[in-house]
Write a protein that binds this DNA or RNA. Structure first.
Length: 419
RNA sequence: GUGGGCGUAGCUCAGCUGGUAGAGCACCCGGUUGUGGUCCGGGAUGUCGCGGGUUCGAGCCCCGUCGCUCACCCCA
């Protein structure tokens, strides 16, 4: 008999790690809500053109990493490889940018890229992202960065770094690109690198080979080509970051994989991760809306990798030991005890107490063992004695101490409900 | 798409120069007619990834294949 395996390269979470995953994702969402962002829930697939036009044909993501297929109506559909293009599609479609600006949205869910998997890189992975649409304002740039940074801090992360740069406006980039292409033409490069450079000359700044790295140290930097407006914007962003105590490093050679980025651009890197160390990144995308057929409205946002952030938390051992702890676990004896316990659980749960019991026909020892394994705070035995007296012994599982030796069952909810 | 490493019990792995499988953890039962974690005793579990070849004999050697993994590339 053959069995099944999950498709290649997907991340799956089940207990106990799924508890950590949920905790990490919720922490990220909470931080976004704290800054006034609201949920936008979107499909995981879109018209392929949303991405080819939004993200850019020349990017690796679009040219070779998309899950694209034809649906039954002959439409070309693509599983979303990133979040921003879809959000912009929805903003345009539903005229969300017609009201008061900025529009501040957050999203979460799975994303898909058909890459070769490796540590921290999956074909289905999870992101939490936010988008602030409507103004090109340094304060908003910094707010977005700060949301990511405080989410990381809330998760107890320490060993990460923020890299920022500015890609300037279209004029700045054009002038720089011209000179950069000229410079690259003077280098001796192999075929595939030349192809890469033609698609996006900035890519060479990210090459890991020593000879190319050292050659590129003499290359012209985009930061030196910023227009006065772009330059001023970037200066204010840096000043504001300093004001609110966020450390950063300027990385003039930073390259992002999506074509829509303009102006302020940033990445968070974790030091204990491995080759795929980026835990989040984003930037301004001032031409994206109009290129998707919307108004000429600017925006900025980020995408955070939930899978990688979870790995970072594990590496730093920063997560609480007990997540979603069960309050009470009941070990029943005899069928009567079992029935009684079952009914009691129903009442406790109605009052918001997280609780569980031992099922099956286990001996008391086995039932207590189950209580232990559940990680519950309190343990309780229910048998004939408890039923006839209406009283029980409430036990603190961590120490074994009996908290109350004859607690009325009717008072159980009051006793542990708010503790 | 290109490289490297690895596939043995649920998990982590051992298995010598080829002689038809083992440990630890986890799980279940008992020692304690109704109180877990420690300790002691007992128990179940494997087509040794799959297919072929060499051999009297293959977990081990050879070929193929599938899968996993790490890295390049790229990125969350």
């Amino acid at each position: 008999m053959s069995t099944f395996q999950a498709p290649k390269g997907v991340s799956e979470y089940f207990p106990p790690i799924s508890e950590q995953f949920e905790y990490v994702r919720d922490q990220l969402l909470k931080t976004a809500r704290l800054a006034g962002y609201s949920l936008i829930e979107l499909p995981v697939f879109e018209d392929t053109e949303v991405f080819t036009r939004g993200v850019g044909e020349s990017t690796d993501v679009v040219s070779k990493e998309m899950y694209t297929f034809e649906d039954r109506g002959g439409r070309s559909i693509t599983l979303r490889p990133e979040g921003t293009a879809g959000v912009m599609r929805a903003v345009i479609e539903h005229n969300l940018d017609r009201g008061q600006l900025p529009v501040k949205l957050f999203y979460t869910g799975p994303f898909f890229r058909a890459e070769r998997p490796q540590a921290g890189r999956y074909r289905q992975f999870y992101q939490v992202g936010i988008e602030a649409i409507g103004y090109n304002d340094p304060e908003i740039d910094v707010e977005v960065i700060a949301v990511a940074d405080s989410a990381f801090k809330a998760l107890g992360l320490k060993k990460y770094k923020l890299n920022i740069t500015s890609l300037g406006d279209a004029k700045s980039r054009e002038a720089h690109r011209k000179d950069l292409v000229k410079f690259i033409a003077t280098l001796k490069l192999d075929e595939s690198t030349i192809v890469r450079a033609r698609l996006n000359p900035l890519r060479l700044f990210d090459d890991k080979r020593d000879e190319i790295r050292s050659a590129m140290t003499k290359a012209p930097l985009l930061l030196d080509y910023l227009s006065p407006e772009s330059s001023e914007q970037f200066e204010r962003v840096k000043a504001l970051l300093t004001d609110i105590g966020i450390a950063y490093e300027i990385k003039p050679t930073m390259v992002r994989g999506l074509d829509y980025y303009t102006g302020t651009t940033f990445e968070f890197d974790h030091q204990m991760l491995g080759a795929q160390s980026g835990i989040g990144g984003g930037g301004r995308y001032d031409g994206l809306m109009s290129s998707l057929g919307g108004a000429d409205v600017s925006g900025i946002g980020f995408g955070l990798g939930v899978d990688r952030i979870l790995m970072a938390c594990q590496a730093e051992n920063s997560l609480p030991a007990l997540i979603n702890q069960i309050q009470l676990f009941i070990a029943p004896i005899t069928q009567a005890g079992k029935s009684y316990a079952f009914k009691l659980l129903s009442e406790l749960r109605s009052s918001g107490v997280t609780c569980d019991m031992a099922y099956g026909d286990r001996a008391l020892k086995g039932a207590m063992k189950a209580a232990d394994k559940s990680g519950a705070k309190y343990g309780l035995v229910i048998g004939d004695d408890e039923i006839s007296s209406g009283k029980c012994e409430l036990k603190l599982m961590s120490s074994g101490e009996v908290i109350s030796s004859s607690l009325k069952l009717s008072e159980l909810i009051n006793r542990i409900g708010n503790k």
